[in-house]
Amino acid sequence: MEYYRPTSVEDAVQILGRSPGAACMAGGTDLVVAMRSHKRGPHAIVDLSGLGLDTWIFDDASNRPAKVKTQGTKKAGNDEQRLGPGWRIGATVTMAVLKTLEDEDNLGVGLLADAASQVGATQIQNRATAGGNLCNGSPAADAVCAMVALDALIEIAGPTGAETMPIGKFLLGPGRVNLEPGQFLTGIFVPAHDMKKSSVALQEYRKVGSRTSLVIAVAGLAARTVLDKGKVVESRLALSSVAPTCIRATEAEAYLTGGPLSPDRIREASHLAREEARPITDLRATDQYRKEMVSALVTDHLTRAAALAQ
């Protein structure tokens, strides 16, 4: 097997262009397991750890246009998207780094940090990366669930140049992501979700599993709830492990927005989220149990958010 460790994005594009079927590797925590169990057998590995994509910055948007072109699916064509301040995170930034991202003003990235702190355990967090978690395409990926909640954008390099894509268009299904041959993920952009000084926010990732560490979620919830004067002004509820990809509970979000967090409304929102989940039965849990856990996770989150507002 050939093993490449390019030192520039251009070199990586060139190698992938002439070695179709080569596997991109960041931390290797998923790829090596897949190779050992013969689920994947690439003839070449392109190790992305030498590309310098292991850093992050907070981009205040002062040095770039307020709009960028984002490419959706081929059918949808290109859209213009407003892009304010946010965090630019390289593809090979590890979970150990992500979990240290500070978010004193509750702009959103704290939710990603919380999810990253629950990936695997210490050893895995030192190797597993933001890009790897995305490209592995697991519907149970903890950090990806937080990225879905935060409307992250995916940055891609390839033979036709760089492009940016909403995360909802990047995730296609279990083990499947929207990358053309020769393309690879270079980073993510997590927008800052501003809020009023008078608002309070609860943002957190919670998952259900057989233990706290080294567990694949039976069901997970990445949630951000912002309240102002007793009413929900921002609701983000992303679910992991209960659909072919991490999904948003958009009906529950729409229902919650604009109203107070009364017990009745919490119950109704939890019911809506439960109905939006489309889980399967597998070796970890039944579909019915997963639906119950979605309801429990949403109820628990909203109840604590309501308490915070009082």
């Binding site: 093993y3 931390g27 925590t29 090596v32 397991v33 750890s49 150990a96 050893q123 030192n126 190797r127």
Partner: peptide, 20 residues
């Protein structure tokens, strides 16, 4: 578990090329 640059990792998941 071994330490790479002082940080613990699972050496069963690390390809040696990546520790160059």
């Amino acid at each position: 578990t071994v330490l790479i640059d002082g940080r613990p990792v699972n050496s069963c998941l690390v390809l040696v090329g990546s520790v160059d």
